[in-house]
Nucleic acid binder design. Structure first.
Length: 493
RNA sequence: CGGGGUGUAGCGCAGUUGGCAGCGCGCCACGUUCGGGACGUGGAGGCCGGAAGUUCGAAUCUUCUCACCCCGACCA
């Protein structure tokens, strides 16, 4: 192992630093010169594109359409929904001027004080307000409903402390905003999207998740109910991977979006919103990576297989390339993405390490030895197992391995998480388990005060009230007051 | 906004008591190599974050300032 890779292995000392180094070295992203923002490199963006493509299809298959709304939101829009403004006001970037001018006292430019905006604009931290302001015009009758719209966009939240991918000031996401004629339909939609995210996280990203509903204090600003999927990182900390909100009529009322129902009565529209962000890339990295670099599930990897020829001279390379060329045709036909790295300027050993660092699921090595035997050597990224297979039906083998890996990566993460799940009934046990990085199921008396006290004393928050709870009542782990069911506590990112 | 830390070559860093600006990696050229981040020889690359001060002389001392990172409060 080289010196550079050894740097990656210092995980115990500082997991956060390990994660950041890994993200940077694997070529996913880096810190920007702009405070708290990030530069997503091409490889990182390719991962995001794969997520986008899959999610977009899932949204469309469930009847949603894409649209786009403005980046800038008049300040007054934000204050129309009381909870919403309270939640977002303190992290908004504000546009106050529309022009610069040459600095009369030196080089450079200054903000032209003459160009102050009459009403400031905020850069969207989320788009409920500007979208519902538009929905007012779109929705007149129950026949106009439901409106099922998604937007792919960037948003900005001026966080006090940022962390590459997990919490950047600017991030990319999708936000769905739907309007419905009935409360039931909207609630159903919010749950449906939570289910969709769960499906995506588990089957595509190999992230085991826990579904549930947020407590009042963790709820989205302006929501009646927030549904979440929670994942566990390798250090035991929780990461909220996606949320879906039932917004009731809060935004319908705030933006006067009403319609005439079947019975001729005027009613406010019911709303949902839901989103996942580039944070998912962070979740993926933190959940699966090892000391050799990223481990990407085959379904997600932008490059699923890399072929590396071992050769001494041009004749050998030519022979290998000819041998592989029909395989490449078949892979193209099967829609398996691959890269043939026959570059002359890197040594094979270098290539091995590089593609491991990037998490390419399979590496196929072909050298003189294989030419003689009609074989290839395949190494899978998740286990680093090497095996020699006949060249004849490589693509079949690749597909089998992909399936195994997709399953194995999920199950490895699941096993790791399950080994860190625990139920506790005393506050002493609770504090110990949290300190050791566990997800803790414990009883809670349902009050905001208890939740806040536990957070202050242990840094653990209620991640969710799990959807699959057994609903067995008990006594609050802190106060001993009655509790209707166990909730999930953990420290989180 | 509080606490801590770091700014010196593209990256990672050393620089003693103030006295010629250094090391490793990477980069370029040539040769030997090529099945786990190759090796040899030669070479290029610097306003030492910025400003002011002390001094014959500052990367080093003083003051101010800026940026970034880590730990908190805030949050997806």
């Amino acid at each position: 192992m080289t010196k550079e890779l050894k740097e990656l292995t210092s995980r115990e000392t500082n997991y956060a630093q390990w994660y950041q180094d890994l993200v940077i070295k694997a070529g996913l992203a880096e810190n920007s010169a702009v405070r708290g923002c990030m530069v997503i490199k091409p490889y990182g963006y390719a991962i995001w594109e794969k997520m986008q493509r899959k999610l977009d299809k899932m949204f469309k298959d469930t009847g949603h359409e894409n649209a786009y709304f403005p980046l800038l939101i008049p300040k007054s829009f934000l204050s129309k929904e009381a909870q919403h403004v309270e939640g977002f006001a303190k992290e908004c970037a504000v546009v106050t001027h529309y022009r610069l001018k040459n600095d009369p006292y030196g080089g450079g430019v200054v903000v032209d004080p003459e160009a102050r905006l009459e009403e400031e604009l905020i850069i969207r931290p989320t788009s409920e307000t500007i979208i519902w302001n538009t929905y007012r015009d779109w929705i007149q009758s129950y026949r106009d409903l439901p409106v099922l719209v998604n937007q792919w966009a960037n948003v900005m939240r001026w966080e006090m402390r940022t962390r590459l991918f997990l919490r950047t000031a600017e991030f990319l996401w999708q936000e769905g905003h739907t309007a419905h004629a009935t409360c039931e339909e909207a609630q159903e939609e919010a749950l449906k999207m939570q289910e969709l995210y769960a499906d995506f996280a588990q089957n595509f990203l190999c992230l085991p998740i826990i579904k549930g509903v947020k407590t009042e204090s963790e709820r989205f600003a302006g929501a009646v109910e927030t549904y979440t999927i929670e994942t566990m990182m390798q250090d035991g900390k929780a990461l909220q991977a996606g949320t879906s909100h039932f917004l009731g009529q809060n935004f319908g009322k705030a933006f006067d979006v009403s319609f005439i129902d079947k019975n001729g009565n005027r009613e406010y529209a019911w709303a949902t919103s839901w989103g996942v962000s580039t944070r998912l890339i962070g979740a993926l990295v933190m959940a699966h990576s090892d000391d050799n670099g990223l481990v990407l599930p085959p379904k997600l990897a932008p490059i699923q297989t890399v072929f590396i020829p071992i050769y001494k001279n041009n004749e050998e390379l030519l022979a290998i390339t000819q041998k592989l060329s029909p395989v490449f045709d078949r892979l193209r036909y099967l829609n398996i993405s691959f890269k043939y790295d026959d570059s002359d300027n890197k040594k094979p050993g270098w290539k091995f390490s590089e593609y491991e660092l990037k998490g390419i699921p399979l590496r196929v090595v072909v050298g003189p030895r294989d030419l003689e035997n009609g074989t290839v050597e395949i190494t899978r990224r998740d286990t680093l197992e090497k095996q020699v297979y006949p060249l004849a039906a490589v693509e079949t083998r690749i597909r089998i391995l992909f399936e195994e890996m997709q399953k194995n990566i999920y199950e490895k993460a699941l096993a790791r998480r399950n080994s860190r799940l625990t139920h506790v009934d005393s506050y002493e046990e609770f504090k110990k388990a949290i300190e050791e990085g566990f997800f803790v199921y414990a009883h809670w008396d349902g009050t905001r005060e208890t939740e806040a006290r536990i957070k202050a004393e242990t840094k653990a928050t209620i991640r969710c009230i799990p959807a699959d709870s057994d609903r067995i009542p008990g006594k609050c782990v802190l106060t001993g007051d009655p509790s209707v069911c166990r909730v999930l506590f953990a420290r989180s990112y």
